[in-house]
Structures are given as structure tokens and as C-alpha cells.
């Protein structure tokens, strides 16, 4: 909702993502703060934020597939893994980062289409099962393929990337790279939502039979949704490979896929903003539990290390369930309410 007195005289301004000067200034300030953060923040926080950017890209992809197009995807982690392995392989072959990122994305996207093909016959929950199949088959396939391809069970090591002759070895460089890619991908995700493809996705999510009547080809739209979502996953996987410098199948589990879905649900499925808020919220939650658990372990109260992981799961499961029952529209909706209240203040209603 816009403040009183703001109106537009042409459609392009009305449909823009950032419509007023204060919006642009706030966003610029946020980005500047994020870019300048390494000057003051410690190495731990920078590492955490780098992983957060990478996860956010994967969840943004999931938002397109699941939130926009309504196709439950239980295999996002496998697609991230596919991107990571392809990126590691290409980086070892000596390709530069600007080529590796899109190629890894395309490889993951191509893989996802193979598993989305049953969409021509089934829909809804059944389609989610084929993504589950993708997730289960992924580690089995990677390990059994010849070790010369993807390193088999040992995985692959990755060298730090080089961009325009500069070696991005340090934590700060990786952070800025991941942040930059996140900004690009988030812009793309927000724009998908207001493109023809995005409208087709939403029409199909809301009522696929009605969408067909409107002339939307369900098979093509579903494949496109999976393709786009897995492209994001592949890019996230490539960044992950560069950040962690080592990829094995154990990093890309079904469990991780479930977490991605959880993040999206907590944040709110219907908007890309929800993906970012959800990732932020769940990552912070995880981190808080981890440090609280660490303190408890140090205090030595007879707690096992696995209990913290278990407690995180209990908390995440409860948060998702509470969200589904009490606020299905997620944090993004609440955030929208806060923003609207701020803009029309001091009036309670428009």
C-alpha cells in the first residue's frame, strides 16, 4: 500500500518493483550496509551470512516452483547438489566462474526437467513424489558413477574462484560474490512474479483446470516452473562448492530439502520476499540454538551433542505447523502489514 498522495500516470511506473524514492533509498541503504558489513563484522558472522545468501538463492528457486506454481518440490537439495557437483567438475576443468555459475544452473535445471516429465500425466502430490525420487536417487547415482566424473563417494575438491584475474580466496571476497549473485537472482525472482510466465504459474497453482481453459499449457508451465526453480538451485550449488571448497553427496540430503521447504513455509510461500525472510528467520533460529546448545555443552549438564540438532528439528517442525495453522501466509504477510501500518501512520485505516 502506498502513502497518501502518491499516484502514477503511466503503467510502467505503477508496475515497478520499487515505486517511490523512499523505497529506492531504503533498499540502497540496506545494500550499502550489507556491502560495508565486512569492515566491522567478525569472520564467523561473515561466514554465516555467506551461507545464508547461498541458502536464500536455493529457497528463492523453491519459491518459484512451490510457491508460485504450486508444485511441491521435495528434491531441491538434490538439485543444489547437482549444481555443486557440475560446478566442481567444470572448475576443475579450468572454466572461469562467470561460465561455471550459469552452466551449473542449467545442468541442475535440465536434471529437474527429467523428473518433472511425469507432470504430463499426474499432478499435485504425485508430482512431489517424483521429486522425492530425484532426491533419493541423487546420492546413489553420484556414488556409483565412474569416480573420474564426479569423484564417487570421495567427492571433489574445488579451488577458490578467479574473476577477472583476481583470486577470490578470502571470506570477505566470497561473501561479496554470494551477496552480488543473491541480488541478481532475487531481482530475477521478483521479476518472474510479474511476467507472463509468473502469471501463468499462479493461474495454474490456483486452479489448473481453469488455467487450461485460459490457454495455458499445463505441461509446459510445470516444466518451466521446475526448470526455473532448479536453475536457482544449481547456481546456489555452484556457490556452495566454491564456498565450502569440497563437495560430497552427504551435504545434499533429503533432510536439507525438507529444511528448504520449511524455510519457505515460515517465510510465506506466495512472495519471493517470503523466501528471504524465511531463510533469515530459520538460519537465525538455528544459530541461536547452536550457540545456546554450545553453552549448555560447555556447562556440562549431561546433554548429548545430537540433542541440539534434535531440538532444532522439534522447533522447526513446531514453527512450520504453527505457521500453517495460524498464519499460512507466513512472515512476508506480517511484514507487509507492518510496512502498510508505517506508511499510513498515524491513520489506522487507509
Amino acid at each position: 500500500m502506498l502513502p497518501s498522495g502518491v499516484f502514477f500516470t503511466d503503467h510502467a511506473a505503477e508496475a515497478g518493483l520499487l515505486r517511490t524514492l523512499p523505497q529506492r533509498l531504503w533498499l540502497a541503504a540496506l545494500l550499502a550496509a550489507l556491502v560495508l558489513l565486512p569492515l566491522v563484522a567478525g569472520a564467523h558472522l561473515i561466514g554465516l551470512l555467506t551461507m545464508l545468501c547461498i541458502t536464500a538463492i536455493a529457497v528463492l528457486g523453491l519459491q518459484i516452483t512451490t510457491g508460485m506454481a504450486g508444485q511441491v518440490n521435495l528434491g531441491q537439495s538434490a538439485f543444489v547438489g547437482a549444481g555443486a557437483f557440475v560446478a566442481a567438475r567444470l572448475a576443475l576443468a579450468g572454466l572461469p566462474l562467470p561460465l561455471v555459475l550459469p552452466l551449473a544452473g542449467l545442468a541442475a535445471a535440465a536434471g529437474s526437467v527429467a523428473f518433472a516429465l511425469p507432470a504430463m500425466r499426474v499432478k499435485g502430490f504425485y508430482l512431489a513424489l517424483t521429486t522425492l525420487a530425484a532426491q533419493v536417487m541423487f546420492p546413489i547415482l553420484i556414488i556409483r558413477l565412474p569416480a573420474a566424473w564426479f569423484g564417487g563417494a570421495d567427492g571433489l575438491g574445488v579451488d577458490p574462484p578467479t574473476v577477472a584475474g583476481i583470486r577470490l580466496g578470502g571470506a570477505t571476497a566470497m561473501y561479496l560474490l554470494c551477496l552480488g549473485v543473491l541480488v541478481v537472482m532475487a531481482t530475477a525472482a521478483f521479476n518472474v512474479g510479474r511476467s507472463r510466465a509468473g502469471r501463468a504459474f499462479r493461474a495454474m497453482r490456483d486452479n489448473d483446470n481453469a488455467a487450461r481453459v485460459l490457454g495455458i499449457d499445463p505441461l509446459r508451465t510445470k516444466l518451466a516452473a521446475f526448470f526455473a526453480g532448479a536453475f536457482f538451485a544449481g547456481v546456489a550449488g555452484a556457490l556452495y562448492a566454491y564456498q565450502v571448497r569440497y563437495v560430497t553427496t552427504e551435504q545434499f540430503t533429503l533432510w536439507q530439502s525438507v529444511w528448504y521447504v520449511g524455510m519457505l513455509l515460515v517465510g510465506g510461500m506466495t512472495q519471493p520476499l517470503g523466501a528471504i525472510l524465511g531463510t533469515l528467520f530459520v538460519t537465525l533460529l538455528q544459530e541461536m540454538l547452536r550457540s545456546a546448545g554450545g553453552a549448555l555443552l560447555d556447562a556440562d549438564v549431561g546433554l548429548q551433542g545430537g540433542a541440539i540438532f534434535a531440538a532444532t528439528n522439534v522447533l522447526l517442525g513446531s514453527v512450520i505447523l504453527a505457521g500453517l495453522i495460524f498464519e499460512p501466509r507466513g512472515l512476508a504477510h506480517r511484514w507487509g502489514l507492518v510496512v502498510a501500518a508505517y506508511r499510513i501512520w498515524p491513520y489506522p485505516h487507509r
Binding site: F309, N313, L316, G317, S318
Partner: peptide
């Protein structure tokens, strides 16, 4: 769709609870 997502949340919750 919502119900499938709820069972996914339940999966996470129960696994953690058992552990």
C-alpha cells in the same frame, strides 16, 4: 497441498522428538 506440507513439518518434528 497444505496438508502435505503439514505432514512434512510433522516428519521434522517427530524425528527430532524421537531423538
Amino acid at each position: 497441498f497444505t496438508i502435505v506440507l503439514a505432514t512434512i513439518a510433522l516428519l521434522v518434528l517427530l524425528q527430532g522428538l524421537v531423538q
